[in-house]
Design a protein around this nucleic acid. Structure first.
Lengths: 124, 124
DNA sequence: TATTTGTATTATGGATAATAATACAAATAA
DNA sequence: TTATTTGTATTATTATCCATAATACAAATA
């Protein structure tokens, strides 16, 4: 588990941890059944308080992305069963991104190409 | 100027104001030269402190999206001259969105279709 | 039995968000 | 000229969130 945490970012550390796990799962770097470091271990690795890691794990647990078992620690769950894939928050964030691009002068074609490229990136 | 502000959101009000202006500009609801309400007027309309609106306007001004003139108030600038349309922050946010969709079980085709639909929505 | 696990609790310091109350120079309208 | 409105700056205050720190506990493991 290699996590790149930006201490200067305005994104909370626990949120960064959560995001990195999401990215790793989407890219297939982490697969269902894979174990995550223990709370204390990861906290020591990246040099933060254990409760900060715990908060990230609790978030991932609530989202159903990981399963936490006191016996086997935290591991990636059998996800992919989300009822709603694209919710309103998703659409709002995406619409804002596209709008920012257009606002900066991007054409529809440029935005389309750029987004397709990033889709390719995530889907290996 | 109709702004929908969600007081219960965890997104700061000044950020919501900024986002709504971006969305309106991208959709063509607001065009270059169009005037924005005065700081005090908008503050009264949505029921917040004038300084909160001022912070949103200062943000938009820094981004180059609006021009503030004491004579004519705030108005949409001649944007579309951004040197860098797609920066790293943009890509990070977009990659995270796509990853979340895949994490929830969306196929590459589903993600592609959904994104193309939202592009159509923004580019009227 | 001793250790490690996730988790809960309480306290503290720091940063940010928003409000409130003014104040001021510049521009406009009377 | 005078009065008003504009964006903006300042200071203080309250509330919330983030992160740390120091423990503590039950459950599971070695």
């Amino acid at each position: 588990m290699i996590l790149r945490i930006d201490m200067a970012s305005d994104t909370p550390i626990y949120q960064q941890i959560r995001n990195q796990v999401v990215l790793a799962v989407a890219k297939g770097i982490l697969k269902p059944g894979d174990a995550l470091p223990t709370v204390r271990q990861l906290a020591q690795d990246i040099g933060v308080n254990p409760m900060t890691v715990n908060k990230a794990y609790a978030l991932l647990k609530d989202e159903g992305l990981i399963i936490i078992d006191r016996r086997h620690g935290a591991q990636i769950s059998d996800y992919g069963k989300g009822d709603i894939v694209f919710n309103r928050d998703f659409d709002n964030r995406l619409e804002l991104l596209i709008s920012e691009a257009r606002m900066r002068g991007a054409t529809k074609q440029e935005v389309t190409e750029h987004l397709l490229n990033l889709i390719d990136l995530v889907f290996e």
